[in-house]
Design a protein around this nucleic acid. Structure first.
Lengths: 209, 209
DNA sequence: TCCGAAACTGAATGATACTTCATATTTTGA
DNA sequence: TCAAAATATGAAGTATCATTCAGTTTCGGA
């Protein structure tokens, strides 16, 4: 569980037969399951392999070590979120503040709740090792995306646009994370769906010159 | 590192001499230090004891197991935050929305940044074991506090006050956590100090009937 | 059908970590 | 001053876990 060598974070071998592709996916799923059911502390290679229905050795054919396993999952999830937000950004470029706020909140919630299970699992790993780097990078990307959207909004100018984009990212990311980690019941998610766009819009309007 | 028996989460023995009280505090500090410098994954009893300048055995005289050590820290920190927010609540009861928003944001930031080191450490442990329960409870307390404040604000009525209080807690807690975990630089905290009250106030005004 | 490559197996290895306890040291109070 | 209580020590016991690898099974193409 120590310093992951970056060059070793890639899969050890790439699958050639359909059989092994299925195995890899089974391991991925099993990792998420174990993470949710047992928690980070009890996520062991043996347990994951057992749940995936393969032997430990098989797992080590595709992942050089445990870290790579976790890293793979997080990376995939972050990529999905990033793609979703980029798409939303394209769609929303040039729109007014109200449309922006509603569109971004909806896109963010959609992306995060599309696979609640994986999302929650990731929050669990996040602190375990050097994910702060990956997540920090994702946050930066998001802030820049927002900054561009705000710059192109026809009905808005800001005294300090960078700070507003930063705060918007914090509000969106933070509140959703908090709810999903504490109690992601349907009721609470519904509340978020209603209140989050409103909160974002209100903030943007208040921050406008 | 398994299921902590609730009855065993209390210190094994209470200190009688000044000497042992100092030891306990040293262990507490050492735990936080190790947590920050080495990370959760490398937080071992030996390392903590070493950093505290005592032997492992000493540690086990006061804490029945490693979990109790972590739990003790988190509990204390949560208590501090809760106290600070209760005090703020007393001070702000009956004030208008603007004063509320500014007061709550400031109180929250003060509480969280009073001991940045401990606060960050806690986020690190949070997912390790069943802290979601403790943190969920803290969130509920906070929401109820906010709800009462909103009920007594002279210049506001809400269609769904409970949801507004819930959202306010999510916005406050989430955004601060996100910034502190990602990059708690002075610049970012300063941004929060300026933007967070504004965001809270804007949301409350927008949510008002 | 048959062979070489790919995939899989799981006991063994070695390292690390939590926890205990018999012993040593320090403090207190009479 | 001195014995009993409190506190501290750290090597040893026990457990768990990541990782390896020699051997077996399965697959795909000729």
């Amino acid at each position: 569980m120590n310093r992951p060598n970056p060059t070793l974070l890639q899969p050890r071998k790439t699958p050639q037969q359909a059989r092994s592709a299925a195995t890899i996916e089974a391991i991925r799923q099993a990792t998420i399951q174990v993470l949710l059911v047992e928690g980070v502390g009890r996520l062991t290679t043996t347990r994951v392999a057992e749940r995936a229905g393969v032997s430990v050795g098989t797992m080590y054919q595709y992942y050089p070590h445990k870290q790579a396993l976790l890293f793979g999952i997080v990376e995939k999830q972050l990529l999905l979120i990033e793609e979703a937000m980029c798409a939303a950004s394209d769609r929303l470029m040039g729109e007014d503040l109200k449309t922006l706020a509603e569109g971004l909140a909806a896109a963010w919630l959609d992306a995060k709740t599309a696979d609640i299970v994986s999302s929650r699992a990731i929050y669990g790993i996040a602190s375990e090792f050097d994910l702060s780097a990956a997540m920090g990078r994702a946050a930066t990307v998001m802030t820049e995306l927002f900054d561009a959207l705000l710059a192109n909004a026809p009905d808005a100018r800001f005294a300090d646009r960078a700070s507003v984009a930063f705060m918007l990212a914090a509000l969106l990311g933070g509140s959703v994370r908090m709810v999903m980690e504490a109690d992601p019941s349907d009721g609470n998610l519904e509340r978020l769906r209603i209140e989050l766009p409103r909160a974002c819009h209100a903030y943007l309007v208040a921050a406008r010159i």
